[in-house]
């Protein structure tokens, strides 16, 4: 028998089985044997005849319900010269396959934009916190110059970071003292400190067990003038200078590192630019915002035009 039921179908009661037979007979969806069986039943059963009569009226009434007028045309618009409309993505006669591909690319672009926005935002934060005078960065920059030079750079950073309060801080003189060969060193220190902030200074504290050796310090400070050297004779700054001087004795020549830090060398110009108004940090911030806005716009546009949005 060609009738089959879903496995989940309930087993019909005898009355339901009879109703099914009559319903199928009404639609001429019975075999010859079933038809003969039903007609024999109808000849002898008034209730079956009445039921079939009801079904006939019902199906006739239901058939009268057709048709419903469509409220508008559902015709598919022709693709324009600028490309298939959204509703025609991937349809034949539009741009075969291209629409669906476009939809996929747009979705991927959305994710790429979000990822790029996140990366740009991260770089923005890094750029904000990055300071050219940072010990880590400085050490990294001078790592090839040897440990002595690296530590000297650390101390240079510490000194320059503290430089803006030259009239207040006891170690301001040390900063000046270490930069005799560079007339604009004080100015550079102010600039660095302004960009770097207090955190930089904190990170550049020297090891607590650093020896304070005035003699070595004097040796290191030899290029400087005596007046400023006197200013470094007490407190942390004094011990810091001691560390620097001691290390420098075992490392590269002192005058190479200041050259590295020199504004004239141009080495720091790029790093310093991250602190400026027109530097890389605002650019990264703007890029992050731009990409985020673009990704949202792409997502909304895709949502509106997608036929599968429901």
């Amino acid at each position: 028998m060609w009738w089959r039921r879903q496995a989940s179908d309930p087993v019909p009661t005898p009355q339901e089985a009879l109703d099914e037979r009559l319903s199928a007979y009404l639609d001429d969806e019975v075999t010859d044997a079933e038809r003969a069986e039903v007609e024999a039943l109808l000849a002898s059963d008034a209730g079956a005849r009445a039921y079939l009569d009801d079904l006939q009226h019902l199906t006739s009434a239901l058939a009268s319900l057709e048709p419903v007028r469509a409220p508008r045309s559902f015709a598919i618009p022709a693709p324009t010269s600028s490309g298939a409309p959204a509703a025609l993505r991937g349809v034949p006669g539009g741009v075969p396959g291209a629409g669906r591909l476009t939809a996929v690319l747009v979705r991927r672009m959305e994710w790429a934009m979000r990822a790029s926005a996140a990366a740009a935002a991260l770089l923005f934060v890094v750029a904000l916190t990055y300071n050219p005078g940072d010990s880590g960065n400085s050490a990294g920059l001078v790592s090839t110059a040897g440990d002595g030079a690296a530590l000297y750079a650390q101390q240079e950073s510490a000194a320059t970071a503290m430089a803006p309060g030259a009239s207040d801080a006891p170690d301001a003189g040390a900063a000046d003292a270490r930069a005799p060969a560079h007339p604009d060193r004080t100015g550079e220190g102010v600039e660095d400190a302004a960009g770097g902030g207090a955190g930089v200074t904190g990170s550049e504290e020297p090891p607590s067990d650093a020896p304070a050796d005035d003699g070595e310090m004097t040796t290191m400070m030899a290029p400087g003038d005596a007046a400023t050297t006197d200013g470094t004779s007490d407190g942390d700054a004094s011990r810091t200078d001691g560390v620097t001087a001691g290390t420098l004795q075992a490392g590269d020549p002192v005058d190479e590192t200041p050259t590295f830090r020199s504004p004239e060398s141009g080495t720091f110009d790029g790093a310093s630019s991250s602190d400026g108004v027109g530097g890389i940090a605002p650019a990264l911030g703007a890029l992050a915002i731009l990409l985020a806005v673009l990704s949202v716009m792409v997502a909304r546009k895709d949502e509106r035009s997608s036929p599968d949005r429901r």
């Binding site: 009738w3 039921r5 339901e16 109703d19 099914e20």
Partner: peptide, 23 residues
């Protein structure tokens, strides 16, 4: 996507229910 037997039984049950509602 239904089996023919399921179409037959559902249609019959639906008609029977409608008949009740109408009656």
């Amino acid at each position: 996507g239904l089996q023919l037997g399921t179409v037959k039984s559902r249609l019959s049950r639906a008609r029977a229910r409608l008949r009740e509602v109408i009656q």
